[in-house]
């Protein structure tokens, strides 16, 4: 299998050429090791970090931003969103607080302080 990809790890956006032949993988066009890792993973099992928002119950018109602590399988992005959508929290919230545990293999954590 041969695929042409754009690396999304950093803004440089290298054009990658990925060749996968059984257990043998070959990535070219990348400028760093992260690009090689991305190229292989994107072909075998693509993942994404999901970022979203959770309502803060005890503050008017206030949302706390959250993210998956680790990337989740790309095909589960909308499943993760559905779970996040049904969630709400109470302030105070600190950056790094775990909002939900064990969601598709990772946690949902806060990315903003709400005093």
């Amino acid at each position: 299998m041969k695929r042409e990809l754009t690396c999304i790890i950093c803004p440089r956006g290298c054009s990658l050429s990925v060749n996968i032949d059984g257990a043998k993988t070959c990535v070219s066009g990348n400028s760093c090791p992260n690009g090689e890792k991305y190229g292989i993973e994107e072909c075998i099992h693509p993942t994404r970090t999901v970022t979203s928002i959770v309502r803060v119950e005890n503050r008017e018109n206030t949302m706390v931003s959250v993210k998956t602590a680790r990337p989740v399988p790309k095909e589960n992005i909308f499943d993760v969103m559905e779970i996040i959508r049904k969630t709400s929290v109470k302030a105070p919230v600190k950056i790094g607080d775990i909002i939900l545990t064990n969601i598709y293999g990772t946690d949902i954590i806060a990315t903003k302080d709400i005093v």
Binding site: I9, C10, S65, T111, D113
Partner: peptide, 22 residues
């Protein structure tokens, strides 16, 4: 800017906007 992708160059880690601001 709650999405991620901030800080890779400057801080060597990938952060969301609010985390970078913090």
């Amino acid at each position: 800017c709650i999405h991620n992708g901030f800080g890779l160059h400057k801080l060597g880690k990938e952060l969301t906007g609010p985390e970078y601001a913090a």
